Simulated scan of single mutants.
Amino acid sequence: MPEPPIFDPAAADGADTAPGLRKIIHVDMDAFYASVEQRDAPELRGKPVAVGGNAARGVVAAASYEARAFGVRSAMPSARAVQLCPDLIFRRPRFDVYRAVSQQIRAIFLDYTPDVEPLSLDEAYLDVTRDARGIGSATRIAELIRQRIRAETGLTASAGVSYNKFLAKLASDQNKPDGLCVIRPGEGAAFVSALPVARFHGVGPRGAEKMAALGIATGADLRRLDLASLRQHFGAQADYLYRAARGIDLRAVTADRPRKSVGAERTFDRDLSSGTVLRETLETIIDLAWERVARADVTGRTVTLKLKFKDFSAMSRARSISTPVSSRDTLAEVARGLLDQVLPLPQPVRLMGVILSALDEPGEAPAVAPGQAELPF
């Protein structure tokens, strides 16, 4: 995860009321792929729907809220999803439709600010410190955007409003689906203190388990550790965690931020050594990687296979091709070839990943200067 700029820890406790605060909105579409399918096929409304995979193989790319009620989640193997929800309805992804809807939504954003940083087809940050319509209130802008998305696309979106990106993203998830949450200047540290650390962006299940072993369950628990202790236990992630526990994020919204790579990797519950099992596992990781590539709406020319062995040593193999990878089949063909090159492996594997890089994507626009400290949220 990209790290925010270095800051002075001595000034951290007062940072959420310091000069230079921004007005940031994070908009996140509700179960985007599945909601588009339910919108376009009324017979699916109110039913558990999964996009991607099928009942026999593959992974879930997205799940409707009806499916989530059974525990079905994105990136879950399809077979497991069916075990949890036997009546689950699978739909093939229609990325051309999702891109078209995403473009409609992006056009709405641009009516209020040119400073839009898309994270994927279904979510984006907006800096409305100096909004194009002179509305002045980030909360009001978020309300208007959500109303227009519903009216123009028939879909719902959740939004978070705050004075930095970290808090805005947390807020957008607070009242899902179809919700709005505002965290005003001076409220960030208290909001974060009450949250489970598993809600922090970048803290995955394994990170949460490690924190639990250290007695860290909430943001308040995390805040009690000084920077030296965090660096001892969490290494390069320590500075981010120190800031996050205090509701601090110094990153600016960057329009059309260029990506370097997109992909997926998985750490296994048990080490794998069989070539047959590794090939089967690779197919699942290819599904996950392609779903993220399609969601990011990018193409690329270099495919990398990443392997981490039982002793934590690593190996990677890459291949660049002359034409952009624009389908799962092409990604799979290259990834399978890379795995075949290294089999049999010298020792069992604990992690495998597939990454697409050398991306064809628009360049980076200049960052926006921060605005005033006292903002009408």
Score class of each variant (00 low, 15 high):
residue 259 R to H: 11
residue 317 R to V: 09
residue 207 G to Y: 00
residue 119 L to G: 11
residue 10 A to P: 04
residue 125 Y to Q: 15
residue 359 L to M: 07
residue 216 I to P: 00
residue 9 P to H: 08
residue 258 P to E: 14
residue 184 R to E: 15
residue 359 L to E: 07
residue 78 S to D: 08
residue 205 P to C: 00
residue 360 D to F: 12
residue 185 P to C: 12
residue 331 L to G: 05
residue 268 F to L: 02
residue 35 S to N: 09
residue 302 T to S: 11
residue 339 L to P: 08
residue 338 L to Y: 01
residue 20 G to E: 13
residue 100 A to R: 15
residue 335 A to L: 04
residue 236 A to L: 11
residue 221 D to G: 07
residue 244 A to T: 09
residue 263 G to N: 06
residue 312 F to L: 03
residue 304 T to G: 03
residue 130 R to G: 08
residue 115 D to L: 12
residue 283 E to I: 06
residue 138 A to S: 13
residue 171 A to I: 12
residue 8 D to F: 10
residue 55 A to Q: 07
residue 213 A to S: 05
residue 138 A to L: 13
residue 296 A to M: 11
residue 141 I to V: 14
residue 145 I to S: 03
residue 271 D to S: 10
residue 248 I to S: 02
residue 242 Y to S: 05
residue 326 S to D: 14
residue 59 V to E: 00
residue 211 M to L: 02
residue 21 L to W: 12
residue 217 A to N: 05
residue 98 Y to V: 12
residue 64 S to M: 04
residue 128 V to M: 06
residue 134 G to H: 06
residue 62 A to C: 12
residue 246 R to W: 05
residue 362 P to H: 10
residue 23 K to H: 11
residue 52 G to R: 01
residue 147 Q to A: 15
residue 83 Q to H: 08
residue 85 C to S: 07
residue 273 S to Y: 13
residue 186 G to H: 11
residue 244 A to N: 05
residue 357 S to G: 11
residue 295 R to G: 06
residue 270 R to A: 04
residue 357 S to V: 10
residue 166 F to K: 12
residue 25 I to S: 06
residue 241 L to G: 05
residue 357 S to P: 06
residue 237 Q to C: 06
residue 335 A to Q: 02
residue 177 P to M: 12
residue 169 K to L: 10
residue 118 P to V: 13
residue 184 R to G: 11
residue 341 Q to S: 07
residue 7 F to Y: 15
residue 107 A to K: 06
residue 82 V to G: 02
residue 369 A to D: 11
residue 187 E to L: 08
residue 193 S to D: 09
residue 209 E to C: 00
residue 207 G to H: 00
residue 106 R to N: 14
residue 339 L to T: 08
residue 103 Q to L: 13
residue 198 A to Y: 02
residue 88 L to S: 02
residue 310 K to W: 03
residue 360 D to L: 14
residue 236 A to M: 10
residue 31 A to I: 10
residue 335 A to E: 00
residue 351 L to V: 03
residue 199 R to S: 04
residue 4 P to T: 15
residue 254 T to K: 09
residue 179 G to I: 07
residue 337 G to K: 04
residue 137 S to N: 11
residue 90 F to E: 14
residue 31 A to G: 06
residue 368 V to L: 11
residue 24 I to R: 09
residue 153 T to N: 12
residue 156 T to S: 15
residue 14 G to E: 09
residue 283 E to R: 06
residue 190 A to K: 13
